[in-house]
Simulated scan of single mutants.
Amino acid sequence: VMSDTVNVASRLEGANKYYGTAIMASESTMAQTGDTFAWRELDAIRVQGRGEALRVFEPLAEKGTESAEQMKVATAYAEGLACWRTREFAKAADAFAKMAKTDPASALFAKRARVFTVNPPSPDWTPVNTLEGK
């Protein structure tokens, strides 16, 4: 099977290892599911073989059946991601740290944010993570 969609799906499957997730979907896939699932945005990524960034999401549960813990993780993560995107790295690290012990994606971002707190990225930095390989 060959196509851009298949290539992206393969790259997202591999990206799960990086974020510690089991399922990841592109924004277009998430939109196609309608109101079926509760999602959390994970990141904006650039995958090998594609120039533009993709916003990627993790399904949490069927809509309306999310646990209190899933909502707590998603809320803290969204707060951290918003701070990350506005270059408020110390605030982002604090937000991600709230759930880092139980959520691998939060732990990853907390670590990345702490690094940028000490060594800020260049002024032309964009909040897009470039993933190499599958």
Rank of each mutant, 00 (worst) to 15 (best):
residue 64 G to P: 10
residue 44 A to F: 05
residue 56 V to A: 02
residue 66 E to R: 04
residue 41 E to T: 08
residue 56 V to L: 09
residue 40 R to T: 00
residue 42 L to M: 12
residue 62 E to T: 04
residue 54 L to D: 00
residue 41 E to A: 08
residue 59 P to W: 08
residue 40 R to S: 01
residue 50 R to S: 15
residue 51 G to I: 03
residue 62 E to I: 06
residue 48 Q to C: 02
residue 45 I to Y: 00
residue 58 E to D: 04
residue 60 L to Q: 09
residue 57 F to E: 12
residue 42 L to D: 06
residue 62 E to Y: 11
residue 53 A to P: 08
residue 55 R to S: 15
residue 47 V to C: 09
residue 54 L to C: 03
residue 42 L to F: 07
residue 41 E to K: 14
residue 44 A to I: 01
residue 48 Q to S: 13
residue 53 A to Q: 07
residue 60 L to K: 11
residue 65 T to K: 00
residue 53 A to H: 05
residue 58 E to Q: 14
residue 44 A to D: 12
residue 58 E to F: 05
residue 53 A to I: 02
residue 50 R to E: 15
residue 59 P to S: 04
residue 53 A to F: 05
residue 38 A to H: 04
residue 58 E to I: 06
residue 60 L to V: 06
residue 60 L to P: 12
residue 66 E to G: 01
residue 57 F to N: 11
residue 64 G to S: 11
residue 51 G to M: 07
residue 49 G to N: 14
residue 40 R to A: 01
residue 63 K to W: 08
residue 64 G to Q: 14
residue 40 R to E: 08
residue 49 G to F: 11
residue 47 V to I: 15
residue 57 F to D: 06
residue 56 V to N: 00
residue 56 V to H: 00
residue 53 A to V: 04
residue 63 K to I: 03
residue 43 D to K: 09
residue 56 V to R: 00
residue 51 G to Y: 03
residue 66 E to I: 02
residue 58 E to T: 09
residue 58 E to R: 04
residue 37 F to M: 15
residue 53 A to R: 14
residue 46 R to P: 07
residue 52 E to V: 02
residue 43 D to I: 04
residue 44 A to R: 14
residue 63 K to L: 06
residue 50 R to W: 05
residue 52 E to R: 13
residue 52 E to S: 11
residue 55 R to G: 07
residue 65 T to D: 00
residue 39 W to D: 01
residue 45 I to G: 01
residue 44 A to N: 13
residue 43 D to R: 03
residue 38 A to I: 03
residue 46 R to M: 09
residue 61 A to T: 05
residue 63 K to G: 03
residue 40 R to F: 00
residue 41 E to W: 01
residue 63 K to C: 13
residue 37 F to Y: 15
residue 59 P to K: 11
residue 63 K to V: 09
residue 46 R to H: 03
residue 42 L to V: 10
residue 37 F to A: 07
residue 45 I to A: 01
residue 53 A to L: 03
residue 43 D to F: 03
residue 57 F to H: 15
residue 49 G to T: 13
residue 61 A to Y: 05
residue 62 E to H: 13
residue 42 L to C: 08
residue 47 V to G: 10
residue 51 G to E: 15
residue 56 V to C: 06
residue 43 D to G: 07
residue 55 R to N: 14
residue 64 G to D: 14
residue 60 L to H: 10
residue 60 L to G: 07
